[in-house]
């Protein structure tokens, strides 16, 4: 599903380039869920962004659906994201100008892959029936994250990349959102790579990877 090979990334700092990671490789099989852990600032989010085609690696390649994302231009990467990826961030995932319903269907319609019965199913599963006409600013953090998951899954993306999706939620809400996401991921056979600080959440996934000093273990 996803394979990254020999990835390297460094940031420019006043003191010179700061290497985040080098010769980093990972693979993710179809339907597999993996937790990506590590200390703050170790480069987990940057790695996830590179895998999502949101940031460019300095070197290496990322294969998604047999395409090297690193060799694509911005438009091609956007096209790939639209059809093959679902990305969930810690917060502010939603388009503020659109209603919750429109947010939910946004990526699916963008990819011309809106499946209404599936959408209905997701809405019910995520308990969003009463919120559909509202706007993102009228929702709590937990509700917003449920909508973000719904949007990513409504597009039937085979790969879900989540960057601390419950990081801004309280424990109860985090638990609820996580459990919904994992159930749906399992139900649909979607692959999941999730950045998290929580070993408890990581334990619920198939395996865990830890990024430390630029190496994955």
């Amino acid at each position: 599903m996803l394979s990254a090979t020999d990835l390297a990334k460094s940031h420019r700092t006043p003191q010179g380039p700061l290497s985040l990671f080098q010769d980093l490789s990972l693979t993710l099989k179809h339907g597999e869920s993996v937790a990506l852990m590590g200390e703050s600032g170790c480069g987990k989010s940057t790695l996830l962004h590179i895998l999502a085609g949101l940031e460019q690696a300095d070197q290496g390649r990322v294969m998604i659906n047999e395409q090297d994302i690193c060799r694509l231009n911005d438009s091609q990467r956007a096209h790939l994201r639209r059809h093959h990826l679902g990305v969930i961030f810690q917060q502010l995932n939603l388009i503020p100008s659109l209603s919750i319903y429109d947010n939910l269907v946004f990526q699916a319609r963008l990819a011309n892959r809106l499946d209404k019965p599936w959408l209905e199913h997701l809405i019910t599963k995520l308990d969003l029936q009463t919120l559909l006409k509202r706007y993102p600013a009228q929702l709590s953090g937990g509700q917003q994250q449920r909508v973000a998951i719904g949007r990513a899954l409504a597009a039937k993306a085979p790969l879900l990349l989540a960057d601390e999706p419950t990081g801004s939620l309280d424990e109860a809400n985090a638990e609820q959102v996580m459990s919904l996401m994992l159930n749906l991921v399992k139900e649909t056979g979607t692959s999941l790579l999730m950045v998290t600080h929580s070993s408890h959440l990581a334990s619920q996934l198939d395996r865990s990877l830890t990024l430390s000093q630029g190496r994955l273990s």
């Binding site: 911005d74 994201r81 639209r82 990305v87 939603l94 946004f106 990819a111």
Partner: peptide, 16 residues
């Protein structure tokens, strides 16, 4: 940025 970023993340290119 907060309004444009989610759309970009969903697969709309920066040129678009």
């Amino acid at each position: 940025l907060t309004q444009v970023a989610p759309v970009w993340a969903c697969g709309v290119s920066r040129r678009q």
